[in-house]
Simulated assay, not measured.
Amino acid sequence: MDLQHLLVFVAAGLLLNLAPGPDVVFIVTQSVRGGVRAGIAAAAGITAGCFVHILAAALGLSALVAASATAFTVLKWVGAAYLVWVGLKMLRSRGPAALAQAGEGAASPLALRQVFVQGFGTNVLNPKVALFFLAFLPQFITPAMPHKTLAFLGLGLLFNFNALWVDIGWALAAAWLARRVGAVRRVMGGLERVAGCMFLAFGLKLALTDNPSA
């Protein structure tokens, strides 16, 4: 790939990662609740989940999921159930009281591990992420390119590396606002409720997603 196409790939990836979605909502919510470290743990978990999808897509497993109605349906319902569970957990939180330490990095190591695992789960159980990599990355791999699997892995790793810094940026911005802006911090008390509703919507939307091979 020449430099021009590589820059187009990087720019497109950054724009896609800046768009709000389940991952961004999760990172922002965790940053507000537990500070920068919690937000970075969420971003790291999501990035780890993306690595699984990239490897699966490079090896053809994601194509198999997309082609198999049964495999896609099973993963779809597991992912939808997980997103709904995360949403319900956010709705049942203590609200403003849970945000008293927001932006101060007060999350314990155990809590950070739990955030990482939740971030990993919200990403790796979403078949739409696998389908995204199958649809997006091949556009930048020419038929004449040797070692297409390695090229796929390389582009996937580059995309994920850039996404990690965007996600960390979301975490830093959310924690900074929660800590320094009093009015915003008070409003953040309702953010987890809003995020919970959004995760419920994401889960329902995923449950209603049709198999692309159908």
Rank of each mutant, 00 (worst) to 15 (best):
I46E: 00
Q101P: 03
G45T: 11
H53W: 12
I40M: 13
V74T: 02
A66K: 05
L134P: 01
G39L: 10
V78P: 01
V117L: 15
V129T: 14
A69I: 04
L131D: 04
S62Q: 06
A58N: 05
F51S: 06
R92C: 11
L88W: 15
G45Y: 04
I40C: 12
A71Y: 00
A135Q: 03
N123I: 13
P127H: 10
N126W: 02
V84M: 13
Q118A: 14
G49W: 01
A48C: 14
A66F: 00
N123P: 06
S62K: 02
A102H: 12
T70V: 06
G105V: 09
A102F: 10
E104R: 15
Q114E: 15
A56V: 04
I40R: 07
A57D: 03
F136G: 00
F136H: 08
L112Q: 12
T122R: 07
F132R: 01
L64K: 07
A130D: 05
N126A: 06
V117G: 06
A98E: 15
V84L: 12
V129W: 02
A111P: 08
G39Y: 09
L75K: 04
V124D: 03
G105D: 15
V84T: 07
L125Y: 01
A80H: 06
V124C: 09
G87N: 05
L83W: 02
H53K: 08
A80D: 07
T70L: 09
P96C: 09
G79D: 04
L110C: 08
A63Y: 11
L61Q: 02
A106V: 06
P109R: 05
A48L: 14
F116A: 15
E104Q: 15
G87F: 04
T47E: 04
F133A: 00
A102N: 13
Y82V: 12
L55C: 12
L137S: 04
L88P: 08
V84C: 10
T122I: 15
G60D: 08
I40Y: 03
G95V: 11
F133G: 00
L99N: 11
L134I: 03
K76T: 03
L59G: 03
K128N: 01
A98V: 09
G60E: 05
G49M: 11
A71R: 03
W77H: 11
L91Y: 11
K89F: 07
A69H: 10
A98K: 09
L131K: 08
A41Q: 12
P138I: 02
G105A: 14
V129L: 10
A80M: 10
F136T: 08
L125G: 04
L88E: 13
L75T: 02
L125R: 06
S108N: 11
L91D: 12
G121H: 02
P127E: 03
A106Y: 03
A63H: 13
L125W: 00
A57I: 01
S108W: 12
G105N: 15
A48K: 07
L83F: 07
L134N: 00
E104G: 08
L75F: 01
S62L: 02
F116S: 11
L59P: 00
S108K: 11
A58Y: 03
F133L: 04
A71E: 00
A71T: 05
G60W: 04
S68W: 00
L64H: 13
A41W: 05
R92D: 13
G60P: 10
V86E: 08
L75V: 09
T122V: 15
G49R: 09
A69F: 06
A57G: 10
L75N: 01
T70R: 04
V74R: 00
A56P: 04
V86Q: 02
